[in-house]
Design a protein around this nucleic acid. Structure first.
Lengths: 207, 207
DNA sequence: TTGATTTGGAAACGACCATTCCCTAATTAA
DNA sequence: TTAATTAGGGAATGGTCGTTTCCAAATCAA
């Protein structure tokens, strides 16, 4: 019972009929639909069918279609960040941590998974000039990646695995472009081997 | 008169009322709308207004909305390729040609121009899983860039400006990811200086 | 000229989209 | 128990979308 307060179901029970569907599972489904079809091509009817909910129920849980996307986007970022940090933590040196981060995105960028694409990259395309607030979330997501990469490079410079001649900020932005570009090219369906070879080549950015 | 056959107006006059609008100008406008809003968010009404044509006229010139996009896409590629090849031709060594190609995309990826984004990158997002034929055009466009970059690297290896230790195919794919990533990050509005510093860093891929 | 053909453009059309309404069901507070 | 509150779900709604239709205008072939 004590660990109940550690789970996401720990929130104080609100009044009224309780939600029947699992929010995390619903957001998993929603982000899949938005990733595969893009924001504008994803119809509410597709979301309701995939999520197994009626439109009325969805509009009770989210303000509107945009609200569904923003919730799915936040969910996607939370999951991704968790996996990414686990991979980075498994590496010893700064350079190895950088490689793990590059590998993380590479492993998402080939085959069928790669074709589904990245919700953040898709968001950049779908919202940049159309929705200032949603675009700000995309900027935040990119900035977090860029900062993490710069931090890892500085760790590498501190432990001697990355030369001090490397400009951490410039290299971090270059890596950011590379990894997001991986996700774009991944939408065209490339092989794991090709993408890994490109990732290996990209490690020259920290030599 | 003789040079008339070299221009795009040189086609043999067909029967019926001649087209009144300039096709190249119309496609310039269409690709701008598609770039700024994305395929699905770009409504025919927006295209007609921007192009200064009635919907009936547009549907006489193109089969459907998809046809407008594909024509604009081809137009965009033709223009871009011309400019890119001019920049490459201005460089002496293979390495400098690679740098010119990277610079070409960098100069498109900051400020307001960057925010408008790339029609090919946008196409990858909008069509990858929804329209096999349109997606094939995107694949073709990426493949042309990748091949050109690999060729430039091999030129550099032949003239001694790029080490033979570089794997041209792996580096070309890495550059492809980097340049398309530049276009994605460019949609979030970055400064010229930041992007140029990333481009300079990316040149380590051919050291 | 005349007829065939093609474009320009406005209005009309059917489909589908995001959203709301309304009724029922499940829960808490009193 | 009863009232208040919230979720579930399906039907209804209003708007917008892509596309078609129709007629006038402009050109070529005869």
């Amino acid at each position: 019972m004590t660990d109940a307060i550690l789970t996401s179901e720990a929130k104080t029970r609100s009044r009224g009929r309780p939600r029947e569907f699992d929010m995390d599972a619903a957001l998993d489904t929603a982000l899949r639909v938005f990733s595969e079809r893009g924001y504008h091509a994803a119809a509410i009817s597709e979301l309701t069918e995939a999520m197994g909910l009626a439109s009325g129920s969805i509009y009770k849980a989210f303000k509107d279609k945009r609200g569904i996307f923003l919730a799915a986007f936040a969910h996607y970022r939370k999951l991704g960040r968790r996996r990414l940090e686990a991979m980075i933590a498994s590496a010893e040196t700064g350079r190895e941590k950088v490689f793990q981060m590059v590998t993380y995105y590479t492993e998402l960028s080939y085959g069928e998974a790669g074709r589904k694409g990245c919700l953040v990259v898709g968001g950049a395309n779908d919202f940049a000039l159309l929705d200032e607030e949603a675009a700000a979330h995309v900027v935040t997501a990119f900035a977090a990646d860029e900062k993490l990469m710069a931090d890892l490079i500085r760790i590498g410079q501190a432990d001697g695995s990355i030369p001090k001649t490397v400009d951490p900020d410039a290299a971090a932005l270059a890596f950011l472009c590379f990894t997001k570009g991986l996700r774009v090219i991944g939408k065209t369906g490339r092989s794991r081997e090709e993408m890994l070879s490109a990732a290996e080549a990209a490690m020259k950015l920290v030599t």
